Amino acid sequence: MVSTNPQPLDPQTLPDHDNLPGNAHAYCVRLTGPLFVQTGTMIAYYPQGGGTVRFEPLTATSLTSMVASHFSSPLYSRDWVVATGQGHVILGDRGYDINSYDLDDGNLTVRAANLLAFDAGLELKESIIPGFLTLIGTGKFLASSSGPVVFVEPPVRVDPEALVGWADCPAPSQHFDAGWMGHFLGAARGALFGTRSGEERQYDFTGAGTVLLQSSERVLEDPQVVRRLEGEVRQLGPNQLQHLSGVIQAQLQQHQQ
């Protein structure tokens, strides 16, 4: 139960790298160097010692060479800033749980909409799977999730909407339920058919590594997926565009049901 008389935050006792006391939905970072932050996630900051905290867009920063060597995803560059200075920065993400993770010479791929921040010890690259980003190196990053995160080891099949990311294991392949495939093949000559849940389609992980799952199938919309598709659409002909329009209409009808 939320207290009716919550204590105001004391800048002198803020955690350096942890959730705010009793609050899994807000995380406090003490700046010790450049920090990449997704726009819209900073909810407050406390400058330290009379200094200041600066938030510069990646597309117009004074740290051009540093950004170029640590952020290799032009598609997402407009949605991130780099924070510098001295002080504490508090991050939040629409009431989602926020956790901190450490990579030690590692390789982790995470859903782009869930990645909130990462330090300059890590390099970000765009995954070949739309909507995901890959972090490489040694450092700390923050990610949000709908509910607590569950860690599982392959081999495992997971609901795509529950997937937060995976570390040190090959990218997944898609697995379709045999019953669903039979239905799909039988209807292939008829109306358009789409998948609707993890019971019909899953991501199949094999090999060594760790898979991160959230405790809910609730997924944040990622506007960058639309940008990626817009670039592909320009290469389509009239017949392909008409087919794609039908697919989109079918998906909209499913969401309205």
Rank of each mutant, 00 (worst) to 15 (best):
E56S: 08
G49F: 12
T59A: 10
G49A: 15
A60Q: 13
V37H: 03
T61S: 14
T52A: 15
S72C: 15
T41H: 11
T39L: 12
F71G: 03
Y45M: 14
P74F: 10
V67P: 03
S72N: 15
L58V: 06
Q38T: 08
L35D: 03
R78P: 05
T52C: 07
M42Q: 15
F71A: 09
Q48T: 09
D79H: 04
H70C: 09
Y76D: 01
F55A: 13
M66P: 00
P57E: 12
T59C: 11
A68P: 00
S65E: 10
G51M: 09
A68F: 02
F36T: 00
V37N: 01
R54E: 13
T52V: 07
L75C: 06
R78G: 14
P74T: 11
G49E: 13
L63R: 04
G40M: 10
S62Q: 12
M66W: 03
G51W: 08
S72R: 13
Y46S: 09
F55S: 06
A44Y: 12
F55G: 06
L58D: 05
E56P: 07
R54W: 08
V53Y: 04
E56A: 08
F71S: 01
G49Y: 10
F71K: 06
S77L: 09
V67R: 00
Q48H: 14
F71E: 05
G50R: 05
M42A: 15
L35Y: 01
P57H: 04
M42H: 12
F55P: 07
V37E: 01
A68M: 04
S73W: 05
L58Q: 03
S77Q: 13
S65V: 00
R78F: 07
S77V: 06
F71R: 02
Y76H: 06
L63V: 04
S65D: 07
Y46L: 04
P57F: 05
M66A: 11
R54Q: 09
L63N: 04
S69Q: 08
V53I: 13
D79E: 13
S65P: 00
L75Y: 03
V53E: 06
T52K: 13
A68D: 06
G50K: 09
L75Q: 04
P57L: 07
G40A: 11
T39I: 08
R54M: 13
A44M: 14
R54L: 14
R78I: 08
V67A: 01
A44Q: 12
V67M: 03
S69W: 00
H70S: 14
T41G: 11
H70A: 12
A44V: 07
Y76S: 10
M42L: 15
G50H: 05
M42Y: 10
V67G: 02
S62E: 11
S77G: 05
R54G: 05
P74E: 13
